[in-house]
Design a protein around this nucleic acid. Structure first.
Lengths: 227, 227, 227, 227
DNA sequence: AATGAATGAGCATTCATTCAT
DNA sequence: AATGAATGAATGCTCATTCAT
């Protein structure tokens, strides 16, 4: 039942014509297995960052991991899948930036700045992977979804503060909060992309300052609120 | 890339940035040749928009054009090259939007709005191709360059007005004009991408209004200046 | 539309994971193409008969034909398909045996004998291929169908004479003509298989005589009718 | 075959004809071992009947048996070998049909009928496995041998009665008893195959009757002998 | 005895590109 | 200019079999 195509049809040899139809191998049951899987993920990240997603061959990955080609399929069933595993590995780091500075939660601009700073820092730190995600998202619908979720997670966090401010009368009431948040989030993320993936030469602090100021201004947060 | 026919990595010729001197075939000398070339470009656009850049095979293109496989190489020497030709075809339309409304050049917000409206309109009109460019830019360095140029062209136009306004004291003087312009341009272009390529459901006029208001606010253009 | 899987999914290189979904390439348009196709079919027959269906690799076939691996797919999309082409090639010869002796159509036993003789002769002549068909039919449902049709074609021919004889009162009236014909046809074909594929050492004339006599007796055709 | 692990071609050991001395693993020494082996054989039969011989993977079998992949080799050394074990398991049942009706051993037609009935009953009961054997015999020379032996065992039994009858002058003396027996045996076995493996819709009793009548007639057993 | 991880040979298939006509 | 046949490198994937625990 598992293997779709064959059954009745003639099949003799390894028959390479069967694409991976079951997604995801079972998780390793032994410590050794877990180690091997981790090795592969690590190797995959290296290879992906070095060669790009398209140019990375599974063979390169297993070789980098010092394993045989066939072993790849013990843990993953496709390039997509191991790429997803690589992303997951970084996920946490990206979403929960280690640096957690003390800020005055009541100072809206300080909140915005902290958010931007954290985002840019994380982006910078994982620039290679973010560029990769951008590349893969352009190619593979599934990862477009992953990117969307990342984008939305960032936007949602920002949306909160925008709404709060709007309710407190601190923000331009004419603005559609959803659209405004999305647009500003795009501003930050795309600028980060330009800076750290495309390599535009922007100073980090200048970036933080400018994006924060633009953001605050855009929403119409009174400069006075800063003090 | 290094491997097969290659893709992103170092390549000498195709350089779509300088459409003139690429390695490509010489321009057709006969009328018949010109027609064939045009047929191919048209077919290529159809196929690219239908299948995406990666999944498009040269064979699909020649077939769509009703020509034999071999004929492709009479006019182009690679998929990159014909893609560049497709882009060129649209270039003009994109950069010089047909609609040219009368606006008060002295009203900065009106200028911004006109710019945004024109940009969004053009983006919407060529959404499929813009999505494609985004895809190809993620894959091929040369086209990343093309995209950069498009981005910069848009930014440059915006930069002018920012500088003007700043000189007239109408804009937040603390802002780095280059960075600010870039960031705001990213805001617009990426939001356009979200709307017309990813299919986020935004109302066109709301988009124009919101982006314009955010932009104006961000720069600190006094609301009064609107009237 | 033609290629099923990809479209949105990431695909860079040749992606060997796509099974042939369109069956049958277009027929060759040039004389050279026709020659190449014929070469392949001939080579396929050689290889199949030498190595058996399962052990035959497409590569062996193209090699035997003196062509490159890729060329196979210009004319066929799978091993099944070229095997079908090989069978077709022999079809005619099998169904219309060259030798057409003069017999007294009114002598039922002479008719049976002629039929058996022709069948056995054809079987013997194409023994290798018949063994192959038997092998492939055991493996591939589609070819089981092909074999069924061959079997039925033989049975149908025999059925006619059985019915005729039954109507003339020359045949055991208790027998179910359909079943009886099928059973007797199996007797002949399977004995042919034993003789010419499995290599049981039976004398040809003895075979013809015995099978004919058994057949005639079985139906209850009066021996008198022979004279 | 020569290539991979191999299949049909020359191989020394597995020789399923002599179940005793094959290369296989030694018989289990502990009760636990015997149980495991039995589990595997049972699982193998299930999988073979479900997926066919070629499509059955050793992994499927061990999985079905609830054992680890490696354990397979504790008891068997190849797919051929476990298939032989599966066959053996049924052998007895096939050759010594449970139903043993009382018949008048002196009534030749009753004997023939009993033989046919028993054969058809057994075939029907083990149709899946018989189809499998047919399939494997088409692929693997060793099992072709097994099938031959089964065929001959059936023929030999029949041969006895044919010879007896011939000596008693009850049978067409012109017939070559060896060939005639073989041919008639093929008639029965192949018709059984058509009915129970290929699924031709024949009534069981009609089958018994028709085959018996054909058989008796074919040999020229006087109808009178029936009474 | 049992486990499950590791191995790696083996093969079909695609598609850009060339070439003879 | 156009054709379409020929090319062949390139790579993902399977699965029987071995091996360290």
């Amino acid at each position: 039942m598992a293997r779709t195509p064959s059954r009745s049809s003639a099949r003799s040899a390894p028959s390479p014509a069967q694409p991976a139809d079951r997604e995801g191998r079972e998780p390793p049951r032994t410590a050794r297995g877990a180690r091997s899987r981790a090795l592969l993920v690590k190797a995959a990240r290296t290879v992906f960052e070095r060669d790009g997603y398209l140019d990375a061959r599974l063979r390169d990955i297993t070789e980098e991991a010092g394993m045989s080609e066939g072993s790849f399929y013990t843990y993953f069933s496709s390039k997509e899948e191991i790429f997803a595993a690589v992303l997951e590995e970084v996920q946490e780091e990206m979403l929960h930036p280690h640096v957690r500075e003390m800020i005055d939660e009541d100072d809206p601009i300080a909140v915005i700045e902290a958010s931007n700073r954290a985002y840019l820092r994380a982006y910078q730190q994982n620039a290679a992977l973010m560029g990769l995600l951008e590349q893969v998202a352009a190619i593979d619908e599934n990862f477009r979804e992953v990117r969307q979720q990342r984008t939305r997670a960032f936007a949602r966090r920002n949306f909160q503060s925008v709404r709060d401010l709007q309710e407190r009368g601190l923000v331009d009431a004419d603005l559609d909060p959803v659209l405004a948040t999305a647009a500003l989030s795009h501003m930050v993320s795309r600028t980060a992309y330009a800076a750290y993936v495309l390599g535009e030469d922007y100073d980090f602090e200048n970036l933080v300052f400018t994006l924060t100021r633009l953001w605050a201004n855009a929403l119409g947060i009174p400069a006075a609120a800063t003090s």
